[in-house]
Simulated assay, not measured.
Amino acid sequence: MIVHEWSADTTDVEEEGRRFGAAWTTQLRAARDSYLELFAQSGVADPAARKTADDCRRMTEEYAPEIAAEFRGMAAGSALALEDIWLLTARTEILALTTPSMECSTIVHIPDGAPPRTLQTWDWHETLSNETVVRRLRTTTGTGIVTFCEFGQPAKIGVNDRGLGLHFNILHHLTDGKQPGVPVHVLARMILERARTIEEATQIARSVPLAASSVLTVATFDGERADAAAIEVAPGGIAVVRAPDGRTLVHTNHFLDVDLAAGEYSPYETTTLPRYRCLVDAAELAGIAADRDRALAFGAIPDAPITVRARRDQPPHLRWETKLTATLDVAGAALSFVAGAPADVATSQWRRLAVARKALSE
């Protein structure tokens, strides 16, 4: 997978969208074509996909008009139809209409008197999103953000310069696809733009209707104290799972909240429990201070299920692989990553992009 880098040069969101769209027209078109193919393979008819995307547009215009303006600019800059951009932004909500997808393992350690130490894998379709982007943005309120995402999405894994970082895992619930809602990737961007605490992030999550489920694991540092919580969101409700007494929080792709877990939905064989147990059993590794060393340690676990490889016995649209391993420096407002699984860290380039600094390589 290729991970591009992009820095905004304006806080005018529509102009930034136009500039981004013009620069990445090829990638946006390729993403649109790939997702249209995936939707069809997954059994979502084109009219249903476009209706869901339009519902997501309307909800975003109501609850996050500045993000909707960015996508208007992106469509204009790329010469794609606006509805094509929304097909990408709403891909989770569209896939929630049919067979959901597996994605991601996250662990956050909360040391005493020091910033959180985090790690996430991003598992996605082998055939999709083989070009992605890490974006540096500065909002109209002055908040600096650096976030990894697919083309056509406003955010996914990221950190702001207000002491907050966010990891992102997909979840599946029986209420998915039952109502219009703000896309979960838009919600992630709203939190990165507006929040500095878990309480603020939770308030933002509770303030919008949703059409699909995810967990946003939020880690914070105020200069003295670190904290973390998994904000589990579904159209049917929201729950907050705080970092436990052991000070390490683990999440994969099943609900931890008992009430939301009662509506769990997964029609296929999932590896969420083996990946969860792997992280719990190796929780002490999350305490390693240096980001790359932490990723290396998890990558050295023999046959660890958090390194997902595509299965050739599955059809193309059901082959998942670990495409990214990422850590967040909440105190330094930086995202570090490798384009690959934890087992690939030792042989791949480790990259770091901070909110206010140029990209660095190690």
Results as ranks from 00 to 15, higher is better:
residue 248 T to V: 15
residue 320 W to S: 07
residue 207 S to C: 01
residue 159 V to K: 12
residue 326 A to C: 10
residue 293 D to A: 13
residue 151 F to K: 07
residue 9 D to T: 15
residue 286 A to Y: 10
residue 187 L to M: 07
residue 118 T to W: 04
residue 89 T to S: 14
residue 307 T to W: 02
residue 312 R to E: 14
residue 182 V to T: 07
residue 315 P to T: 08
residue 284 E to C: 14
residue 327 T to C: 13
residue 47 P to D: 02
residue 231 I to A: 09
residue 324 L to W: 02
residue 4 H to C: 08
residue 115 P to R: 11
residue 234 A to I: 06
residue 201 A to S: 13
residue 320 W to M: 11
residue 23 A to R: 14
residue 139 T to K: 02
residue 199 E to F: 03
residue 103 E to C: 15
residue 277 R to V: 12
residue 316 P to S: 05
residue 190 M to Q: 12
residue 74 M to S: 15
residue 357 R to T: 11
residue 21 G to A: 03
residue 204 I to P: 00
residue 32 R to C: 15
residue 63 Y to E: 07
residue 292 R to G: 05
residue 226 A to K: 05
residue 148 F to W: 15
residue 101 S to T: 15
residue 287 G to R: 14
residue 252 T to N: 10
residue 357 R to S: 13
residue 78 S to H: 00
residue 356 A to Y: 08
residue 100 P to M: 00
residue 204 I to S: 09
residue 328 L to S: 11
residue 333 A to M: 11
residue 6 W to S: 09
residue 73 G to T: 14
residue 220 T to N: 10
residue 252 T to R: 08
residue 80 L to A: 07
residue 201 A to V: 03
residue 87 L to Q: 10
residue 307 T to M: 01
residue 218 V to P: 06
residue 73 G to C: 14
residue 296 L to H: 07
residue 239 A to D: 01
residue 49 A to P: 08
residue 132 T to Y: 04
residue 285 L to S: 01
residue 83 E to L: 00
residue 321 E to K: 03
residue 210 L to N: 09
residue 159 V to T: 14
residue 44 V to K: 10
residue 123 D to M: 04
residue 66 E to D: 13
residue 152 G to Y: 08
residue 357 R to W: 02
residue 44 V to P: 07
residue 235 P to G: 06
residue 270 T to W: 06
residue 240 V to K: 07
residue 313 D to N: 08
residue 260 L to F: 06
residue 315 P to H: 02
residue 76 A to W: 10
residue 99 T to A: 01
residue 243 A to V: 15
residue 275 R to N: 01
residue 67 I to G: 03
residue 18 R to D: 07
residue 114 A to W: 08
residue 279 L to I: 00
residue 262 A to Q: 14
residue 130 N to I: 08
residue 347 T to V: 13
residue 357 R to F: 04
residue 75 A to L: 09
residue 226 A to D: 06
residue 168 F to L: 11
residue 192 L to S: 04
residue 1 M to A: 11
residue 307 T to V: 04
residue 119 L to E: 07
residue 353 L to C: 12
residue 135 R to N: 13
residue 326 A to D: 00
residue 13 V to R: 12
residue 245 D to E: 13
residue 25 T to A: 08
residue 32 R to V: 15
residue 111 P to C: 10
residue 90 A to V: 04
residue 179 Q to R: 05
residue 357 R to P: 11
residue 279 L to F: 00
residue 347 T to E: 13
residue 74 M to W: 09
residue 286 A to Q: 05
residue 80 L to K: 03
residue 75 A to N: 06
residue 104 C to G: 12
residue 158 G to M: 08
residue 185 H to V: 15
residue 235 P to F: 03
residue 298 F to H: 08
residue 206 R to W: 03
residue 354 A to C: 03
residue 323 K to P: 01
residue 304 A to V: 01
residue 252 T to V: 14
residue 186 V to H: 03
residue 223 G to E: 09
residue 305 P to G: 06
residue 159 V to P: 10
residue 161 D to E: 12
residue 31 A to C: 08
residue 10 T to Q: 11
residue 59 M to P: 05
residue 166 L to R: 05
residue 70 E to Q: 14
residue 341 A to H: 03
residue 98 T to E: 05
residue 220 T to W: 10
residue 5 E to M: 05
residue 250 V to I: 15
residue 300 A to Q: 10
residue 23 A to S: 15
residue 56 C to T: 04
residue 271 T to G: 13
